[in-house]
């Protein structure tokens, strides 16, 4: 991860992004990847929990909750459009 990279933790509610890299603790990264959070996957931040953490993201037609600490290890690029979530395939 380089300085200046945008991570999932930087996104606001409603914003979409494409995953670039999944870092952080190996066990957590592996779990996230096995649940489909992979380079190329489109994700959208749906909401933030009432106490500010964790966040809910939507990807591949399902909802996933992760803490900001985990989100900060996922490098993304913002997508131009923040419309409804894409196709079933999610990737590409």
């Amino acid at each position: 991860m380089n300085a200046g990279d945008i991570t999932l933790a930087d996104l606001g509610v409603g914003e979409s992004a494409e995953v670039r890299a999944v870092g952080g603790d190996r066990g957590v990264a592996r779990r996230l990847m096995e649940m489909g959070v992979l380079p190329g996957t489109l994700v959208r931040v749906v909401r933030v929990a009432p106490l500010g953490d964790p966040v809910e993201i939507r990807l591949r037609r399902y909802g996933l909750s992760i803490r900001r600490a985990e989100a900060a290890a996922i490098v993304v690029t913002r997508s131009a459009e923040s419309g409804p979530l894409p196709s079933t395939a999610g990737a590409r």
Partner: peptide, 11 residues
């Protein structure tokens, strides 16, 4: 152990 992570599906 490692700080427990939260990776939780919201079905």
């Amino acid at each position: 152990g490692p700080r427990p992570a939260l990776v939780l599906e919201l079905p």
